[in-house]
Nucleic acid binder design. Structure first.
Length: 197
DNA sequence: CTTGCGATTCTA
DNA sequence: AGAATCGCAAGG
């Protein structure tokens, strides 16, 4: 296993987004390593992307992390109740990010289940198992991520990505990004990437 | 499997 | 006011 370094994140957002698929993410929550495999992402490419929070050069306390160095976590609250996790990309001053939309549990699934449903995995309905962490809000619930973790460094020992080095036996599917109807022509860009299915 | 709708609070 | 969402119920 090798931890992804700063340079990995400093590249083109569309490339980083696709390369994050199949990578493993570790978040140490209360002393427990929660590990998931990334399966679904979206690219947000900065000041010219109408769907991006920094569109038009918008710089506010919320989006401040996006303006900084790559490889940090940008976490914001959506619809008043759900956290969404992003990975900052590109060079500092070019405020882009990759939204992590979905992942599957790899290690300590039981703890993630308690975070998400306050009960054991084998008591879940099939519907709950199927929709366990296949959305940005659901994933953050499972991992115990909130905007408290906004600004964390992915080169830390508590929160990082790694490449398992295993075979990539999958095709990358491309689709329109979700719930950005307001973004006009940018709503049609195929900047959502996912594997498995 | 898909659709429709209410919940809830930060952000600007 | 509007938002990079979710869970549940109902219908095909």
């Amino acid at each position: 296993m090798k931890k992804l370094d700063r340079r990995f994140y400093q590249r083109d957002t569309l490339v980083v987004a696709q390369e994050l698929l199949g990578k493993y993410m570790v978040y140490n929550h209360n002393g427990v390593d929660l590990v998931v495999k990334i399966t679904d992402v979206e690219a947000y490419t900065g000041i010219h992307d109408k769907a991006c929070h920094t569109y038009g050069g918008k710089r506010t306390p919320r989006t401040e992390v996006m303006w900084g160095e790559a490889g940090y976590a940008y976490i914001y609250l959506i619809y008043g109740m759900y956290a969404c996790l992003n990975v900052v990309t590109e060079e500092a001053g070019n405020p882009c990010a990759v939204l992590i939309r979905g992942a599957v549990p790899v290690k300590n699934r039981e703890q993630m289940c308690l975070n998400r449903y306050q009960k054991s995995y084998d008591t879940l309905t099939n519907y709950q198992k199927k929709n366990f962490s296949n959305g940005p809000g659901k994933l953050c619930l499972a991992l115990g991520l909130t905007k408290e973790q906004n600004g964390m460094d992915f080169l830390s020992d508590q929160f990082y990505f790694y490449d398992s080095g295993e075979e990539k036996g999958y095709a990358i599917h491309k689709a329109k990004r979700i719930n950005i109807d307001y973004a006009e022509e940018a709503a049609d860009y195929l900047w959502r990437f996912y594997i498995n299915k």
